[in-house]
Design a protein around this nucleic acid. Sequence first.
DNA 1: GGTATTTGACCAGG
DNA 2: CCTGGTCAAATACC
Length: 281
Amino acid sequence: MVMKEEMLMEEKLVISELEQGKELANRLFNNLKNPSSSNESNKSLISGILHSYENAIFMLNLDKKTLDRNHERTDQSNKKRRLSKKKKTDKIKICVATEQEGTSLDDGYCWRKYGQKDIHGSKNPRGYYRCTHRFTQNCLAVKQVQKSDTNPLCYEVKYLESHTCNITPLTNKYSAFMSKEERNKGAKVDATKQPKDTIKHMEAEEMMLSLEDLDTKKAIFRTFSFSNSETENILFEWNDPIENLSPTTSDSGITYELLSEFVSVDDSCFSSLENIIDLKS
DNA sequence: GGTATTTGACCAGG
DNA sequence: CCTGGTCAAATACC
């Protein structure tokens, strides 16, 4: 059965994640026996171990939900399968972003809020935004932003339709996390000339998820963990799967600082993602 | 005064 | 009928 094969695949991923954590723990153990080992490298190892655990737990939770749903579906085999065509689904992209105090989740485009709704089962309302240039340039880009129930710094951003407007974003991915004032200043001078220091200290990250492929998503998590274990500054390469969404998507070589908070992104951040994955299956 | 946000009403799909 | 998405009048902000 396909389901069984899938399950084995998921298990392998989790096991591999745990093995990686074990390997890092061993290295830490050896380091601790050696008094000359650097404190920094130990810290890095601990961080890597934590990431491995978090990734494994995340994957387990994800799998459990998927399996639960598969189960439900087979139970209801007599009932007509729900046709999942959520509107515009083929262009839905999800981005999970964390927000630091006083920063904005602006992605560089101009959005105009046109609605807000309380969502059944969610503590936080969902905001509805459309491109400011909807009427002037007939740009149909739309996004929905909802704060995570469990992690107030975590936002689930759902993009529907991509920008067709010709407006070049004033900001880039880095400035996306500046305060509005900082952004305005930067934009007036030259948005492309932001000091590298600013970039280095930008303490926020997004995770773009291609909904095409669940395994890809998992691979992303694995990459995070791996990178973290190998580098002190926890850098990772951003292979942005979302074209035309954010200003710097073409700069594939850029590295972003990854915060440890990333691993605290919980399942609720992916509730919508889960739904879409479900639809796909 | 122009532009953005808020919020209740409305609508469509299930 | 319930829920999520959009509209549009009222309001806030600059």
